[in-house]
Design a protein around this nucleic acid. Sequence first.
DNA 1: CCAAGTGTTCGTAAATTGACGAATACACGA
DNA 2: TCGTGTATTCGTCAATTTACGAACACTTGG
Lengths: 105, 105
Amino acid sequence: MKPLFHPRVEDLDLSTILHACADPTRLRLLADINTEPGKTCGTFQTELSKSTLSAHFKVLRESGLIRQELGPGNSRLNWPRTAEVQSRFPDVITAILKSATRTHG
Amino acid sequence: MKPLFHPRVEDLDLSTILHACADPTRLRLLADINTEPGKTCGTFQTELSKSTLSAHFKVLRESGLIRQELGPGNSRLNWPRTAEVQSRFPDVITAILKSATRTHG
DNA sequence: CCAAGTGTTCGTAAATTGACGAATACACGA
DNA sequence: TCGTGTATTCGTCAATTTACGAACACTTGG
């Protein structure tokens, strides 16, 4: 299997992270992952196509907001990297997630 | 003079705000405005053209992050709306600004 | 009135983004 | 081995973004 790229904590970039959060779809995905860590990609309720969803997960992963591990049956387990991001940019993600879950459901 | 549009606090949108902050140039402008409230557009150190800069200010203003008032000589005074944004999305902007000024300046 | 200073708007162009279907890659069960 | 299920990659396309110069609008000083 092709290894999935994950940036190191010291390589995290604030603008990249904010850009990843700025899309409503991705913000919802991120919130869901934080609410239910370990969810697989297929378990997210959405009307978007599989390829579009995959692209959004890629943006989240490459920004450093989530970690994607191999799960059973070629699935991907999605884990938040909130603690790591927090160590670089204190309170940014926690504040965003709090507002996101409060205002959008 | 054509009136500049400013969104009401109740119309602020988290994704719009995050998108406005996601651009490095705008994040720097926003940080500068918060550091030195009332700065005019021409006082920002940048290599971008006047029209490009104006477009960035427009994005910041229409997202609700700053307020632009008329100043002397057709200039624009730029004020942060941090407190208002804070009332809608607690800690989001303050955390972003803290990380932005700590890492980029 | 005229020139200089400050910003916005318009037209344009290159790059990026977000979306999709089709094709592909991989793991697992029968 | 052969489907089935899960997810990525590729090619395409429309829309958005970012940038610029030129033109325009407005204020102020001479």
